[in-house]
Design a protein around this nucleic acid. Structure first.
Lengths: 329, 329
DNA sequence: TTGTATGCGTTATCAG
DNA sequence: CTGATAACGCATACAA
């Protein structure tokens, strides 16, 4: 009979079944046990309404089967998708997800890492823009989109290839003068290679191009000014625009429309990310699709196997183009 | 000196500092301790690189400071927003979020609840469409958008009021014949009250209206057929449309455009949820905004205080209208 | 105040 | 294959 207070434990079950504590543990963990014993234990479990309590095992084994996911937020649809597929991938491996939104706050990131270690997580997957982040060596750590060092595996899209693809696509669609726009951290992270790939392709194709890159805190109006400066007599002087993200592409399209420039008739626009309306409907703009599911899957399998220390330090996964109404294909 | 294997524990710190184990515990937990002792302990912690390990406390106190969040996915922007604000609200109270995506799978829901209890979570917040779900009585449980019983607090928007508001708004904007469309579970959950509020307002305003409600598995084409059947000579025979969600509103607008009906010139459309482009830009359609942040805040404070058993069983939070380009305001 | 000792629920070892 | 018992790291009641 269980003690008055609290739930029954394995010991209670053992007493009820008339077997030893260890036997109960084995039954619960599906280890080989005599048929008779197994049945007796199972009956006792049912009778007492025993519920397994993992905190004992955590203390004993240091295994929580939990992975911490550190990401800015889930409002941004790209992050939301990432969180979704990472959780699914962990779920499939019987791991739990401890979720941490940083809102780009450096202190919060540090606090979360501390907390995660305190909770003995089996690993950490982080998407962070914190340049100064010091990554603990004694815990499995995998980053997304941001390379820290060879000892910390980083998973990302083929951002360079995506930029290259965008330029080529615009060229193939008839554009002969291109522009690239982006906003965001001056940090040299993987997504910044989108520009490099774009520029490389432009040079390769021998097509003239413009670049407009804003810092995080720059006033948005600078983009408008940039566009205005390229409009002469109501005509834009470039006919292909590649934006660092779908969101920026969308915003720029609104600005262009406000200035009487038609998309895709006057200028064709390609974004990056592969965001869909409401997550599942049409693409918001023509775009370079990030393989979010593959990124998630790779991050998870990497973080769970990273004790092997034979994992590559940077994994780039292939992107893909999709038309979304802002190009003439 | 810590034992060769593993990290140093409080006992190691105590030995290093020349104090008792209990004293270390008190310093770590910020309980009153003599200045000298405190300093000695802190130095020892630094010297050994001691890291607090919560698994001991969990076993000892049964407190994990963790809440499980069970939700279909994070692809749907409404869910994504909810996850975001719930995590933030928990964070602010120094609680951790254990994330579980069900993808509408009933077995997964049950599995997650079992897992959550196994992990001794302090409470569960669930958004579920499972009608048969049996909610454990011995754990703090709060639902969102779905009322189960008076002993399980449910947090939701004022869905009835939202439907009422939508009809009134359309009327005020000049509409004189209305329609309502919705798709989804036949389950009698809180969101289904959107229709009731809409109907009540139509009756009150003495304005004629149509209803088109599809089951989850119904072919989408039925909506198109419905719209087609209301088009005579290229003109729609109603001038105001209220949809159960922003997503449906968006889809219907595409269908209408395909049939040559202009929005908002020929028909004004209002959705429900308050979804914005990319989470932060313009509203996707004119809409009834759900107070997601308040829902999150309320769910969290309720689940954390639900041992008081004085909490109300249904809390409806006020909604609000916002123009989003699909109405003539 | 500080120190000591016990127990939380489980796993794992080792002797029957 | 089973039974007894010792950890695991921490909190806390109780003794000093």
């Amino acid at each position: 009979m269980p003690k008055a207070k609290g739930h029954p434990t394995m010991l209670d079950v053992a007493r009820e079944a008339g077997v030893a504590l260890g036997t109960v543990s084995k039954v619960v963990n599906r280890q080989p046990v005599g048929e008779d014993y197994k049945r007796k234990v199972e009956q006792a479990i049912l009778k007492l309404g025993y519920q397994y309590n993992s905190s004992g095992r955590v203390l004993r084994t240091d295994r929580t089967d939990t992975v911490a996911l550190i990401i800015p937020n889930t409002i941004n649809p790209y992050f939301a998708k990432l969180v979704h597929y990472i959780n699914i991938a962990l779920e499939r491996r019987d791991k739990k997800t401890l979720l941490c939104f940083t809102d780009y706050d450096k202190n919060r990131e540090l606090e979360f890492i501390r907390m995660a270690r305190e909770n003995q997580v089996d690993g950490i997957i982080a998407l962070t823009y914190n340049a100064e982040l010091v990554i603990p060596e004694d815990i499995a750590f995998v980053t997304i989109d941001r390379f820290f060092s060879v000892s910390v595996p980083c998973i990302a899209s083929d951002n360079f290839g995506g930029g290259w693809l965008a330029a080529h696509r615009l060229y193939d669609l008839g554009c002969r003068r291109l522009a690239f726009m982006r906003i965001g951290s001056s940090l040299s992270n993987e997504p910044s290679k989108r520009k490099e790939g774009f520029v490389a392709a432009c040079v390769e194709l021998d097509v003239p191009f413009e670049l407009k890159i804003l810092e995080d805190n720059a006033p948005f109006g600078e983009f408008e000014a940039f566009l205005s400066s390229h409009i002469q007599n109501g005509r834009l002087d470039f006919d292909g625009l590649f934006c660092g993200t779908d969101m920026l592409a969308w915003q720029m399209i609104q600005v262009l429309k406000g200035k009487g420039i038609r998309v895709p008739e006057d200028v064709q626009v390609i974004g990056f990310d592969g965001i869909r309306m409401f997550g599942t409907l049409d693409y918001t703009v023509s775009t370079i699709i990030q393989p979010v599911q593959e990124i998630a899957e790779t991050a998870v399998s990497t973080v769970l196997s990273s004790h092997l220390s034979t994992v590559p330090s940077l994994i780039c996964l292939p992107v893909q183009y999709a038309a979304g109404g802002t190009t003439r294909d």
